[in-house]
Amino acid sequence: MTRTLPEPKISPELADFWAATRDGRLLVRACRSCDSPHWYPRTICPFCGSPDTEWRDHDGTGTIVTYSVMRRAPVPYVTAYVELTGGPTLLTNVMDCDPDALAIGQAVRAVFPKTEAGEAWVMFTPA
């Protein structure tokens, strides 16, 4: 897939996330108060409202919850929800795959394709 990736519009308070993806690491934001990870990252927990949140390293493994192949795009691509091991579930793309061989429940691992400016998005590929 050779889609041009947009540059993320980075919120200053979430800059650590994007610094990690540049290094090929996935951070998940979680709440110390209710112990729940959430997606997308926020500094105030969307479940309990606590500002006591922290970054946690994730190994980038997960499974496909659902997906669809966008056939009518100039370069067909796969959107998906991937449930990270232990949560949360995130909206993403599955790349470097045979779109016709994907399945719900399939194991995937995170990859970090880069934008022109060197920022990196979180995507997945079959494990």
Partner: peptide
Amino acid sequence: EFEAAYGI
């Protein structure tokens, strides 16, 4: 910020 690249 966390979805723009995914072609939704």
